[in-house]
Amino acid sequence: MKGEMSIIVKTITKLIYGFIMVYGFYVIVHGHLTPGGGFQGGAIVASAFALLVVTYGNQGVNNYLKKDVFSLVESTGLVLFIAFAFFGLGVTFFYNFLANSGGLFGNPAIIGVNPGDLNTGGTVPIMNIAVGLEVLAALTVIILTMSAASEITKEKEN
């Protein structure tokens, strides 16, 4: 199949793309504790998808990576983000109504330098996940569209 890369690149891609994705989701979920956040983690996951598209070509990934699914995920992330911004409207737009409340992500943080607890942060982790979904889907849609367009343009010229 054309648009593919050599067997060396394929083997290395099979080995590492899962690790890149897991690392990206780690960066998204731990956004309120470690450096990084939704945007950075989403970019890392999208780079794993970009590696797949570059290695196997647009024809090779067409059955597994659907553009419509990623478009839906992108809109879901943006709607989730805006919805959680509106939920704080009892005080102000973007009010952190879950912080220190004791419920979901509501544990109070220990003041000072500490390793951190995943169940803190209020709306910050939820916003991280929403923006992470939005960014990874948006960048993947861009990559898929551009690869399809470049291959089809080349076919037409030949």
Binding site: A43, A46, S47, A50, V53, V54, I143
Partner: peptide, 8 residues
């Protein structure tokens, strides 16, 4: 990563 993919 992503810029390089688009360039390729």
């Amino acid at each position: 990563a992503l810029t390089m993919a688009i360039f390729i």
